[in-house]
Nucleic acid binder design. Structure first.
Lengths: 297, 297
DNA sequence: AAGTTGTTTTTTATCGATAATAATTCAGAT
DNA sequence: ATCTGAATTATTATCGATAAAAAACAACTT
């Protein structure tokens, strides 16, 4: 049966809205809330019913108002708000990256299913999806082969990444001055400078900014295959850096500085400068990844 | 429950081997056959048992010999030798390419499952896998969106294809004369010339050769992401051309000629010639695809 | 008439079960 | 040393069922 994580998460979000005083007098309509939380009205109604039941809100029908205040203990714990699929994803990445799983290991659906506490179907669906990341390969009627999170993987990944990013960066140089992308770029530059000031404490905010920046560069001329490839990169980096905290501050500071040079180059619309900044940045990103892969071995 | 398509296909293949007289006197060992057909010994034994039962082979143990000749009616029909997954794939492609499915159509797992006569799970697994081809997109807790087999799709596909192929072609120019790839390339050139001679009747053999050629070019420096992308291309072309026979002879003759120019260029190891031939060929391949997409609309 | 809530229908996410296939084992034969 | 026989065990490919969530429909309010 389906888990009710969508409902629980929606309830938590609603609580957060109430707690921060978003709705003083009356709650908005069900449709309004639905749009805000990105779930169906069915779910919203379930949430409202529960909140009413708990007296967190009172009234009914069109007139629902804040009831007793929200307490920390009202929230559902985080575990209950992540779907099975997300849990499987996380556990698999742990198994792979933290478990020192050797290249060449055969993956057994049944075993993983037992280990992760889900039906084999869930594992299967995850593996099929995950196979796009180039780390596993299916053997029909047999299992899956783990090819290894290796140096070769990183090299192949970056070869493509450089091709794609240079392509977009070059197109950037040809953009008319009036393009809205430049405005976005300047906004992003500001965010980078802000981060740099508070880097000592906020250094882990970098990965979000990194993603935003590289995706912005690709907006110059959207291509679904490039976008997909960036999904691979985000995914890999998301998990990899989550568990590789070594030198994070220093690494991220350096990367922010590189981004700023790169952004300035893009704003200058000078192809040579752009190309140089792009290559420089990707070169050090590549080294960082490779070092951390090698370090882990 | 699992279908027994593996067994049936293995049996058919064994029959084919017997029919073409591969084993005059004695059949090879079970292990030998196993390797040859790429299935487990369990399956081979089941096949041998059945063949013995049907008197197509006689004897037992180490001495199994040809029995009565193989008859056409001995073979299992093709439908019974394709797994559910393959059937779903084919039916889905038909639905998409032949059914004039409009961009923006929402895909309903349950409906497809009923239509194709499989469990929803099978549809789901197929769609997850298929989403890598950039034609559909998942909406969590809701269905899938069909983005359309459109001109944009073709343009985006070819932008990447050109990047990848030029990259490989350029690396080819730097290969030492002694590289084994040149030998393979000469062999492929021969196959092209042979095909050209019998093109009037064998023109549909081109697609296999096309695939072989482009994969050979990428062998110069293997990259899993490029390989994956070529899977996308092969898949699309496989189905697309299967149902778009218009001008096939003429189109394929032209493509073979282009390949020959391209191969000669690669053999010459002259970067300029290579680049030109590569661009020319991809340009016309792109036009062909786009025309046939537009023609269908 | 547009927007809101109440109710019903449809669809997805997830589980568990089963036949076919693969993998493993071991003893005896050539 | 490799092959078959035979039996056992393990794993995958497939089906069907069910609660949660989404979507569609209907009835009501202002």
């Amino acid at each position: 049966m389906k888990t009710d994580t969508v409902y629980k998460q929606a309830l938590n979000q609603t609580l957060a809205l109430l707690a921060q005083g978003a709705y003083q007098e009356r709650l908005p309509s069900e449709n309004e809330l639905r749009r805000r939380l990105g779930v169906s009205r069915t779910t919203i109604r379930k949430v409202l019913q529960e909140l009413t039941h708990r007296s967190i809100i009172t009234g009914a029908g069109r007139v629902r108002i804040n009831g007793r205040g929200v307490d920390d203990s009202d929230y559902f714990p985080d575990v209950e708000t992540t779907s099975k699929m997300q849990q499987v994803e996380r556990q698999f990445m742990e198994w792979m990256l933290l478990g020192d799983t050797a290249p060449g290991t055969l993956i057994n659906e049944l075993e993983l299913a037992r280990q992760f506490g889900v039906a084999t179907n869930g594992i299967r669906e995850f593996l099929i999806h995950f196979s796009r990341f180039g780390l596993i390969e299916k053997r029909p009627n047999s299992g899956w082969l783990f090819k290894g999170f290796t140096r070769e993987f990183a090299l192949e990944l970056f070869e493509i990444r450089v091709m794609f990013e240079l392509r977009s960066a070059r197109l950037f140089a040809q953009l008319p001055e009036s393009s809205p992308l430049f405005k976005k770029l300047r906004a992003l530059s500001k965010l980078h400078r802000d981060l740099l000031e508070g880097i000592e404490t906020r250094y882990h905010d970098f990965s979000g900014l990194d993603n935003q920046f590289h995706r912005l560069v690709n907006e110059v001329s959207p291509n679904r295959f490039i976008d997909d490839f960036y999904d691979v990169i985000s995914f890999i980096f998301h998990y990899h850096y989550q568990w590789n905290k070594k030198d994070e501050l220093q690494r991220n500071r350096a990367a922010v500085l590189e981004h700023l040079v790169y952004i300035d180059a893009l704003l200058s619309r000078n192809s040579d400068r752009i190309e140089e900044a792009c290559r420089d940045h990707l070169k050090s990103a590549k080294q960082t990844l490779i070092q951390s892969i090698m370090g882990a071995e």
